[in-house]
Computed example of a mutant assay.
Amino acid sequence: MGRRSDIIAGLGGATPALRRYARALCAGAGQAVADDLLLSALQSIGARIRARELRPADLGEARIETYATLVALAEKKLAGAPGPASRHPPIVHGLASLGFDERAVLLLVSLEGFGYDAAARIVGATREIALGRLMRARAALGAEGLRPVAPLEGGRRAASHLRVVK
């Protein structure tokens, strides 16, 4: 197998994490919408790699490009999407109340475990802007009582509402 085919096959293994991110990014808009976005992003990246428009150095680079494509597609598709239904848990409503940019950065860092530089690159912003969006998102969730990690008495921390699941 060639290098391009190895990277494309590796992206197939990253599909569960990409699906998790897409569904969280859609914040109640529906699993079908999230799955369509994921499929479009994977097809786009695969086509760009095959056509040699995109020459990632390794799987990590291809993964970042795939998340960036997913974010760009989601931003366009979710512009007029309805919010979550009343049956969704409070965290989904909290995520839906955030602006798209804040939600994207928060989920990249908190859910997917990307560093600040990689998250900034994925959303197409500088590191400082991405950090500002992350701080606003955390503050907004904290104001709604959905802070990812809230301190308790005695220095202990409460269980996180947003956890990294691998």
Rank of each mutant, 00 (worst) to 15 (best):
G142D: 10
I8S: 13
D117L: 11
L25N: 08
I91N: 07
G28A: 01
A118R: 14
P89M: 14
K77H: 05
R163Q: 11
G154Q: 13
I129G: 02
A104K: 08
R147W: 02
I7G: 01
D101H: 05
E75I: 03
K76N: 11
L42Q: 04
G132C: 05
R87Y: 06
L78G: 05
L152M: 15
T15K: 13
I45D: 06
L98N: 01
G113I: 10
I49E: 05
H93I: 13
G10W: 09
D58A: 13
L131G: 00
T66L: 07
G30Y: 07
T15H: 08
M135P: 03
V105Y: 03
R20W: 04
S86G: 11
L18Y: 07
P56I: 03
F100P: 03
A17S: 13
A41M: 00
R121A: 12
L162Q: 08
A27C: 10
A158E: 14
R3Q: 09
A72G: 04
L78Y: 08
R63L: 13
G60T: 04
R55Q: 12
G60S: 05
A81G: 06
E153T: 09
R138I: 09
V123Q: 02
G12C: 03
V71E: 02
R156Q: 15
C26S: 15
Q31N: 15
G132P: 02
Y21F: 15
R138L: 10
A72P: 00
D101I: 00
R121W: 06
R4S: 14
G132I: 01
L39K: 04
E61P: 06
A17C: 07
K77E: 08
L131Q: 12
S110E: 11
S44G: 12
G99K: 08
A51V: 11
A17E: 14
A47P: 00
L11S: 10
Y67W: 07
A120Q: 04
G94A: 13
G10A: 09
R147S: 11
P151G: 10
P89C: 10
E112H: 03
R133Y: 05
L146C: 12
V164C: 06
L141T: 14
G155Y: 04
A125K: 13
V92C: 14
G80S: 14
L108I: 02
G46W: 02
Y67P: 01
R87F: 12
A47G: 11
D58Q: 04
L25D: 00
G13M: 10
H161R: 14
R163W: 10
Y116F: 10
A85R: 12
V33G: 09
L146K: 03
G113H: 13
F100V: 05
L54C: 11
A150W: 03
A79I: 04
R103F: 02
S97A: 15
D6C: 02
V109F: 04
A27R: 00
D35W: 07
A130V: 05
R55M: 13
Y67G: 01
E61A: 14
A140K: 04
S5E: 15
A137F: 01
L37Q: 08
R23Q: 12
